[in-house]
């Protein structure tokens, strides 16, 4: 039987690096949107417990043993890299709907503050924080980990997001070279 080859949203693109600043694609195995059904918050909390996670406050995410839960909207979160089965929430497979980009290195916040109208300085947007915000003209989910920014954009627009971040990186790098 023939086998269908899977491709990541940004397949064929190599990481972009300017000194210690680098942009790369993160291949996420699985994204599931989790939205608790009416009155099911407690049942959902119970279902999340084995993962060591709890449903989140807005603009934050939590990670445990490689499994991440990120707030993405009203009564809605994305569960990344884990399987959850529960009748307590509407679960929708979003694994293929989003591309994940990672930007790391000194100046990453400067780069992103050319595209996001957000205050991303570390004292304001600290590790563990997330935002559902526009990346230039695109919908996105932005997260700050201890070492990097990771952001989700629509799969179809991933190449535009990549190009725009890469361009901002070039500008920041050219400024630093002065």
């Amino acid at each position: 039987m023939p086998k269908l080859i899977a491709k990541t949203p940004l397949s064929g693109l190599w990481p972009v690096t300017h000194r210690d600043l680098s942009l790369s694609e993160v291949a996420l195995d699985r994204i599931t949107s989790v939205a608790p059904f009416r009155g099911q918050e407690k049942a959902l909390a119970k279902a999340l417990k084995p993962l060591g996670l709890a449903f989140l406050a807005p603009n934050s995410f939590a990670e445990k043993a490689g499994v991440r839960l990120v707030w993405t909207g009203r009564d809605q979160a994305f569960l990344i890299n884990a399987v959850l089965e529960t009748p307590a929430a509407a679960l929708t497979d979003q694994s293929d709907g989003w591309a994940c980009l990672r930007l790391e290195g000194a100046g990453a916040a400067d780069v992103l503050m050319r595209l996001y109208p957000l205050d991303l300085r570390a004292q304001v947007f600290a590790p563990g924080q997330a935002a559902r915000a526009g990346l230039n003209h695109m919908a996105s989910v932005l997260m700050r980990t201890e070492t990097a920014f990771e952001l989700l954009v629509f799969r179809s627009m991933a190449r535009t997001a990549w190009a725009e971040i890469a361009e901002a990186m070039q500008h920041v790098a050219a400024r630093r070279a002065l």
Binding site: R38, Q76, Q94, D96, G97, F154
Partner: peptide
């Protein structure tokens, strides 16, 4: 949903991007 059916048992999610 938010304006007229806030108390209904209902969840909406765009999956346009997820499927070819």
């Amino acid at each position: 949903q938010q304006a007229f059916c806030a108390d209904w048992d209902l969840r909406l999610m765009s999956v346009t991007e997820a499927w070819a």
